[in-house]
């Protein structure tokens, strides 16, 4: 499994549920990625803007505690750090509704997470 992940790639997981976040993060570490974890959109922005932690891919829940939700985080990344790839996750209906309203593009994942699907999506993002 580890050979499938590119060495040195860093994924930021943003999820307000500590257990969901921990399980997914540990799975992706097991696959060979470096993984950072944020519990809120604000924490994610701090991580993204810190020079010591260059991030390649952000996997964020759409609904986050605090002032910044996943869509807002995604918009900020597309505008300010277009080289960072974003994968949004959430309840399918919620993503479809809000994504349509915001003309948001890009891959979306349904929650609860399916680990193999996450890895599959990440591979496709890396291939772009």
């Amino acid at each position: 499994m580890k050979q499938e992940a590119a060495a040195g790639e860093t994924i930021l997981i943003v999820d307000g549920d500590v257990i969901t976040r921990t399980v997914i993060a540990e799975y992706l570490r097991h696959c060979g990625f470096r993984v950072l974890e944020a519990g809120t959109g604000t924490e994610a922005l701090q991580a993204l803007q810190h020079p010591d932690f260059p991030i390649d891919i952000v996997l964020s829940d759409v609904e986050l505690p605090g002032e910044i939700n996943g869509f807002e985080l995604s918009h900020w990344i597309r505008k300010s750090m277009p080289e960072v790839k974003v994968l949004l996750a959430g309840a399918v209906e919620r993503i479809a509704d809000t994504a349509g309203d915001l003309c948001e593009e890009g891959p979306h994942l349904a929650k609860p997470y399916d680990h193999r699907l996450i890895l599959d999506h990440i591979k496709r993002l890396r291939a772009r």
Partner: peptide
């Protein structure tokens, strides 16, 4: 988060599994 990443990275490097609570 930056302090947390730093400490968690170091603990993982030493062989721990780290559950990060914010």
């Amino acid at each position: 988060p930056i302090i947390r990443f730093d400490i968690a990275d170091e603990l993982r490097r030493l062989g721990c599994q780290v559950i990060e609570a914010s």
